[in-house]
Design a protein around this nucleic acid. Structure first.
Length: 942
DNA sequence: GAGTTTGAAACT
DNA sequence: CAGTTTCAAACTC
């Protein structure tokens, strides 16, 4: 929610901490008001003018009030003085009188006695008035006498009735320190009334009429007088509902924690079409509505200042700012509503103001947190059609082992967000067509628990949960190795069987297919594991030494596959990695598996593909490749061979090819590095909405940065080259780096974002993640589970662009600003006229471009369709048009002009002149044709 | 294309 | 956590 200009009246009081704009679609009238106020804020006092207006309105109101009170059954209410006599800063003490006076203007002290045990106070009195305000006097407990409590109302006045309540309490108010003002909304017939139980005296304000000014209650002495204003709804409460308002706090129901809940910054439209434009919240306040019912708030009319007597509710779906929830009060979920800004030392208000007119409704609807876990490693890859968090898991099943696999994949929980468990059935299917030493042909459903959290998408395969027999050869113990893939933003988990067996290069592969979830088909010579619709394959497994790295593929499911390829290679103890394309590439290169004699297309390899070279006990030979890297390699750039190891692949063409020289990274290849600081770079949010329409293969690299324009990572289309000069492309300033990409065809200087500087790059990645674990997560995600509406995960912070330029990340992503945004002067909300104008312009421009493109295409097509007329026909005839040359044209024009001149001399009419010229033009054409014909006769036939 | 503006990231 | 600086992209001329 963008900040807005504070209410001048409030600002002058200096007590209201935070004023936020809920919505701001303003009518022209409102804009005029706003403009006026802004001007007056600069020097002209608005207060005086407003007060005069208030005074005038209260003149009438006081008479009405007096008349109404005559019939009132409320005891002891007396109007001592005409309201019209009240002026700003005027204190009107009433002494011991059981009456009070209304303060109507800012700094006007309203003094009224709150007497204990007087006739004016009735116990257990239910305040059932349509509109009730309860005020607790400060330090009432300390006084046995009448208490003159000064309550300051700024620009607001309410008819007051002194009442009290005791006994069973529906509202417990701590009056020892603070004064609480509760504004009760009108109650539906079937709802309980507000019962107030107080140790001392309660003064309630019961309005008789409507007020004319924004209900900005300002306490000039917050420490001693009115410290908080809480509008408590009872409109939906049950009889037994208890609203605890200790110290002017409001508690959010457990099931409705507001943390991380955001709503699009759209106006809080009232049924009447009006909208709430401001809401002011104080810090250290809680809203309690344990019933989880909508929280109603009092709404004042910005234009008239009246407080409506109808139910007002406001959507509390976006606590990011206006309803910012800082932390839960209890472990069960109540959260603190606070303002983001403001002086924490001050006590402020929960004050909602204003709406455009009375009778409007604002609904405070507690919104529960998304209960589903955040998706694991959802890269905004293209070509996804599902929201399933996808975890690509592959198992290496050694020959002779049972195909049953039980794997537990746990994502390290980094935040307090509740995590849930996603169970994925894991089946191991042995294709009947493949010879296998394993007799088990059936499928044994296994369970994979994917404990997703909102934090770092670290993925750990618990070794204990991995039966050794299932993963490797006999006696082998599974080892889980978290792996950082350079350039990748998702974590890899390497399931390694620490086998002691030496593997022969010529080990014959016994492929099986391990499938998670429904198996759509059995792939020969491959292990495939499907989670959701994603597939993980281990291709051409060569031995029980097969190790593999499992990328936590983007939480988008799709048809992308991750294949794990085992490559026979020389037994080596050195760390060798063979990188496979993380993206589907168009290459036709294929990998020849010498053992299985199978040829595997590299193009089949998909993001995060990795493989381990067999034949070594060491954790070597892992093959991983960032998604985009192969493309870069294919482009012949950014790949240096120095200090890089390469693995030769046998291609179908018979040529050896150094596919992917990759530096050995210690942090990715260190044996027994279970606890090593691997860098989990993953996206924990769903892919942007727009991705779903893209049909590319998934790309595991999330695109969190600007280049995720419109929710679609530009990688899917194009990625702008960076121009970094000072950051070495190792900071998030660099879009390439921020997107987990290597710089490629960029204009950067002193670039370290390449494999030549992998070590520095890794350090930089770590550094970024230390600062912000979500640094590499997509900035544009979905607001909540199942919600298709995209939003900026952090919100923008624009100050001057109005969020209508590409400086704004929200606007750039073509999404509306939300309550998470801290922008100022935001115009990027749904009903923004400026935004609409821009959208129209953009649409029009786009339409024009499309039209032009279509026209170009059409013209081009037509031109292509046009027969090319040779100047000489097939028969050797020189066609007439070939004679229409410059000199012919000029001669013709001379003839026409001569005719026209003659006609003018003959004083012909215009029509006759026209005919004459046309006739001459026909004659010229005929002459040209005749000449052509004569030429034809002259051309000898060939 | 140079200079300015802007806001996120980085830094203090 | 807030204020300041740095940085590169967006924007303007």
């Amino acid at each position: 929610m963008p900040n807005q200009i504070p209410d001048p009246t409030v600002e002058q009081s200096g007590d209201v901490n935070d004023i936020y704009e809920v919505t701001s679609p303003q009518t022209s009238q409102e804009k005029a008001i706003t403009s006026t106020r802004e001007k007056e804020q600069k020097g002209v006092s608005l207060i005086t003018r407003d007060l005069i207006q208030i005074k005038e309105e209260l003149d009438d109101f006081s008479h009405q009030l007096g008349n109404n009170l005559e019939d009132s059954k409320l005891p002891g209410l007396t109007i001592l003085a005409p309201l019209t006599d009240h002026l700003p800063n005027k204190s009107v003490p009433t002494g011991n009188k059981t009456s009070f006076e209304l303060g109507i203007v800012q700094d006007c002290k309203v003094s009224f006695p709150l007497m204990k045990d007087t006739n004016q106070v009735s116990a257990d009195k239910e305040l059932v008035a349509p509109f009730t305000m309860v005020t607790l006097a400060t330090e009432m407990n300390n006084s046995t006498d009448n208490v003159n409590t000064n309550v300051h109302f700024s620009g607001e006045t309410l008819p007051v009735t002194v009442v009290s309540a005791a006994g069973n309490s529906a509202v417990n108010v701590n009056t020892s320190k603070q004064q609480v003002v509760i504004l009760q909304k009108p109650q539906p017939p079937n709802h309980s009334s507000l019962s107030v139980s107080l140790p001392t005296v309660v003064a309630s304000f019961q309005p008789v009429g409507q007020l004319s000014k924004p209900a900005t209650l300002v306490c000039s002495q917050p420490s001693t007088v009115c410290t908080s204003t809480v509008y408590v709804p009872l409109t939906v409460g049950k009889n037994s509902e208890k609203i605890v308002v200790p110290h002017s706090t409001v508690t959010i129901p457990q099931q409705t924690p507001l943390v991380a809940q955001t709503a699009p910054k759209r106006p809080c439209l009232m049924p009447s079409g009006q909208s709430v434009t401001k809401i002011m919240l104080s810090k250290n306040s809680l809203v309690s509505n344990q019933s989880g019912n909508p929280v109603a708030v009092a709404v004042t009319n910005v234009a008239t200042g009246s407080i409506t007597s109808q139910q007002h509710t406001i959507l509390l779906a976006s606590p990011g700012k206006s309803y910012s929830v800082t932390k839960p009060i209890t472990s069960t979920g109540p959260s603190v509503m606070r303002g983001v800004t403001g002086n924490s030392n001050k006590q402020g208000f929960y004050l909602l103001s204003p709406v455009k007119s009375p009778g409007t409704k604002v609904t405070m609807i507690p919104v529960s947190l998304p209960k589903s876990p955040q998706k694991i490693a959802p890269a905004p890859a293209c070509g996804t059609t599902s929201n399933f968090p996808r975890v690509a898991i592959a198992t290496a099943i050694a020959g002779g082992s049972t195909p049953t696999v039980t794997t537990t994949c746990t994502v390290a929980k980094q935040t307090t967000m509740p995590a849930t468990t996603t169970k994925v059935l894991w089946k191991t299917v042995v294709p009947a067509t493949v010879k296998s030493s394993t007799s088990a042909a059936g499928s044994v459903p296994q369970t994979i628990k994917l404990v997703a959290a909102s934090g770092l998408p670290q993925v750990l395969m618990k070794p204990g949960n991995l039966p050794a027999s299932n993963l490797s050869g006999p006696g082998a113990s599974p080892v889980v190795c978290p792996i950082q893939v350079p350039g990748s933003k998702f974590p890899y988990v390497r399931l390694v069987t620490a086998s002691t067996q030496q593997t022969s290069v010529s080990t014959v592969v016994t492929p099986r297919t391990a499938t998670v979830g429904p198996v759509s088909g059995i792939r020969s010579m491959a292990h495939s594991a499907q989670v959701g619709t994603s597939t993980v394959q281990t291709v051409g497994m060569s031995s029980n030494q097969l190790r593999f790295a499992v990328p936590i593929v983007p939480a988008i499911s799709g048809h992308s596959q991750v294949k794990i390829l085992s490559i026979a290679s020389k037994p080596s103890s050195s760390a060798q990695r063979v990188l496979f394309p993380a993206t589907t590439v168009t290459t036709t290169s294929q990998v020849h598996h010498p053992a299985s004699n199978s040829t595997l297309g590299i193009s089949q390899l998909t993001p995060g593909t990795s493989a381990l070279l067999s034949g070594s006990n060491n954790m070597t030979g892992l093959v991983v490749l960032p998604a985009q890297y192969l493309t870069q390699v294919q482009q012949g750039q950014q790949v240096s061979s120095g200090a890089l190891l390469s693995t030769n692949f046998l291609l179908s063409s018979g040529q050896g090819q150094n596919i992917l020289p990759v530096p050995v990274s210690a942090n990715t290849e260190t044996p027994n590095s279970h606890q090593q600081a691997y860098i989990p770079i993953a996206a924990a949010t769903a892919p942007p909405q727009g991705l779903e329409s893209v049909t590319h293969q998934s790309n595991p690299i999330p695109a969190p940065s600007r280049h995720q324009v419109n929710g679609v990572a530009l990688d899917c289309k194009e990625r702008r080259p960076c121009n970094c000069n000072k950051s070495q492309c190792l900071k998030l300033y660099c879009d390439c780096f921020a997107n987990g990409k290597f710089c490629n065809s960029c204009n950067c200087a002193n670039c370290y974002n390449n494999l030549d500087h992998e070590e520095e790059r890794q350090k930089a990645i770590r550094s970024c993640l230390e600062r912000n674990p979500m640094a590499f997560h997509p900035k544009i995600g979905k607001s909540k589970e199942g919600d298709q509406e995209r939003r900026h995960t952090k919100g923008c912070n624009c100050k001057r662009s109005g969020c209508l330029k590409n400086y704004c990340e929200c606007y750039e992503a073509k999404i509306l600003c939300t309550n998470l945004c801290k922008c100022v002067g935001c115009k990027n909300f749904e009903d923004s006229s400026e935004r609409k104008t821009l959208m129209h312009l953009a649409d029009a421009a786009e339409f024009r471009v499309q039209q032009q493109a279509v026209a170009k295409t059409k013209i081009s097509s037509q031109l292509q369709d046009l027969p090319i007329r040779p100047p000489i026909s097939a028969s050797g005839e020189r066609l007439p048009f070939s004679f229409v040359k410059q000199e012919v044209i000029e001669a013709t024009c001379h003839c026409l002009l001569a005719q026209a001149s003659d006609g003018e001399e003959s004083q012909l009419t215009y029509v006759e002149l026209e005919k004459l010229v046309v006739k001459e033009f026909g004659r010229c054409l005929m002459q040209i044709i005749e000449t052509a014909n004569q030429t034809k006769d002259l051309i000898p036939e060939t």
